[in-house]
Simulated scan of single mutants.
Amino acid sequence: MRNRFPSSRPAGQRATISDVAAAAGVSKATVSKFLGGNKNYYIASETRERIAKAIEDLQFAPNAIAQGLSNRRTDTIGVIVASITNPFYPELIAGVEEALGGSEYTLLLGSTDEQPAKEAALVRSMLQRRVDGLIMAAVTMDDAEVSRLVDTDVDVVLASRGLDTTLADTVVIDNLTGARQAVEHLLGHGHRRIAHLAGPADVVPFRYRIEGYREAMADAGLDGDERLVASGNPAEAMTALLTLPDPPTAVFVANDRMAIEVLEFCAGRGIEVPQELAVVGFDNVWVGRLSGVGLTSVDSKARAVGRKAAEVLAGRIRARHADTVQLPAPPERTVLQPELVIRRSCGCVAGEKDDDAPDRSFF
């Protein structure tokens, strides 16, 4: 069909809002209001039809960022995780995708590699891109830094890694209960020398996990031997633990990434799991579900956390941009309950299912 609105633009050059305005016989401001969907700006139906026709004929593609500048929305959500190589985080991202699938939002993803400086740079970059909201699954920032972030013109949800105080909407697993489940299960197997391979002390979930370990051991009358608590490189930590005069017969590991390294350490040194050393992890990532691995682990519900975080954030964004002006609701803390998934690494050989195949459908 012949273009009713011929343009003097060079071939291959994108149409601009000025081209649309000239073709429709209206001002650029009117086209901007039409594109922004401003409900308070009346545009006659005949004028709307002319603008729509000009957009179609000129194959005009509005710049999403430019639209966001006019209506204060860019329909983008930033997701910042600690490490994309840790199988926990792709599952969390998959949950975000499930919740937002079919919506208007585009995700911007960043991985901090557990580096505070890189995390801060990613936050600045996403704020410069005017994201409508942030899902933070890599919180190395302290309370004051998170508070300043919340005070910006962007909605924030902390996912998986919360803070001691609820400064922003937070979705986490009950880490203390999950740790107790792991240790109590090992106690049920008759173990009394149970070690804990801890995560970084400056990360709140790991603090709750070590607290749960200590509570369970104390309840069993086995507290007090801090030699059984180790951290840092898993191979070095396990070497130190297993060379104690009275070494542990079981270990509760703060996350599955380290637990897999413990299993590799044992395999490399001929230590039979679970006969010589029982192992329980935390997160229930897909690698641990492989039949050749069979890692007993606390399910930290990564996908459920991602889904809930995305739902909470989308609700906040809708409320912020609603037609009616209202005070924002105070931040809420959602705590999901963990579940111990039993396989063979703890000694429950019968608990492992042959069909417990990994789910790699992260995206």
Score class of each variant (00 low, 15 high):
residue 305 V to L: 14
residue 182 A to P: 07
residue 359 D to C: 10
residue 55 I to L: 07
residue 154 V to I: 12
residue 285 V to D: 11
residue 56 E to N: 10
residue 234 P to R: 04
residue 331 P to T: 01
residue 230 A to E: 06
residue 93 I to S: 09
residue 138 A to K: 05
residue 128 Q to R: 13
residue 24 A to N: 10
residue 250 A to I: 01
residue 360 R to K: 06
residue 263 L to F: 13
residue 259 A to T: 08
residue 269 R to E: 04
residue 224 G to L: 05
residue 221 G to D: 02
residue 295 L to D: 00
residue 113 D to A: 13
residue 16 T to I: 08
residue 242 L to K: 03
residue 273 V to S: 03
residue 90 P to V: 02
residue 194 I to G: 01
residue 214 R to G: 01
residue 214 R to F: 04
residue 239 T to W: 08
residue 144 A to N: 12
residue 152 T to I: 00
residue 142 D to L: 06
residue 315 G to V: 05
residue 290 L to I: 07
residue 158 L to P: 09
residue 12 G to V: 04
residue 303 R to C: 11
residue 180 R to Q: 14
residue 34 F to S: 07
residue 111 S to C: 10
residue 159 A to Y: 11
residue 14 R to D: 11
residue 21 A to E: 02
residue 262 V to L: 12
residue 207 R to G: 12
residue 335 V to A: 02
residue 99 A to I: 09
residue 352 E to M: 15
residue 249 T to A: 05
residue 333 R to K: 15
residue 83 S to D: 15
residue 94 A to R: 15
residue 310 A to E: 08
residue 30 T to R: 04
residue 176 L to F: 12
residue 282 F to V: 01
residue 300 S to Q: 15
residue 263 L to A: 07
residue 204 V to T: 13
residue 270 G to C: 08
residue 236 E to P: 02
residue 186 L to M: 00
residue 5 F to S: 10
residue 155 D to K: 13
residue 32 S to F: 10
residue 119 E to H: 11
residue 207 R to K: 09
residue 304 A to K: 13
residue 350 A to K: 12
residue 169 D to Y: 14
residue 292 G to Y: 06
residue 239 T to S: 13
residue 278 A to Q: 01
